[in-house]
């Protein structure tokens, strides 16, 4: 584990939120934030508060929906779930990320002199 946490790239948080909701179904903001922290094994620097800007952005674009409800331990909270449009977007973005990370991976493996391992 590196001594410093990873700064989130622009747009990656949105993708993480979508993926979390796609896998876990309906969740509240705190749950999403916790889930991202857990999956990233606390490697991501996340002020949990920033999740809400991401949520409102996604909701305005129609990729997620929201609804007030009651949590397992009987607390009132707003629950978010992914929409059909959101799933489509997630698929597109996931594919894009896959390609991008592949390219980045190859680039960074490149040795001096141009030969690849």
């Amino acid at each position: 584990m590196s001594p410093e946490k990873l700064d989130l790239l622009q747009g990656t948080l949105d993708l993480m939120v979508l993926q979390t909701l796609a896998v876990m179904g309906s969740m509240h903001g705190y749950g999403i934030a916790r889930r991202i922290e857990q999956v990233s094994a606390d490697e991501v620097l996340l002020n949990q508060g920033t999740i809400y800007a991401s949520l409102v952005r996604l909701e305005q674009r129609g990729w997620i929906g929201s609804e007030w409800g009651v949590s397992g331990n009987n607390r009132k909270a707003k629950f978010y779930s992914i929409t059909a449009a959101g799933r489509k977007k997630l698929a597109e973005d996931a594919e894009y990320w896959g390609r991008l990370t592949g390219v980045m991976d190859r680039m960074l493996r490149m040795k001096t002199g141009g030969e690849t391992a």
């Binding site: 002020n47 949990q48 508060g49 800007a53 409102v56 952005r57 305005q60």
Partner: peptide, 17 residues
């Protein structure tokens, strides 16, 4: 602490929406 600044979150939210 985990949440980070309330006011910043609020501002970001406003900015985003």
């Amino acid at each position: 602490v985990m949440f980070g600044g309330m006011e910043q979150a609020r501002n970001r939210h406003r900015e985003a929406r």
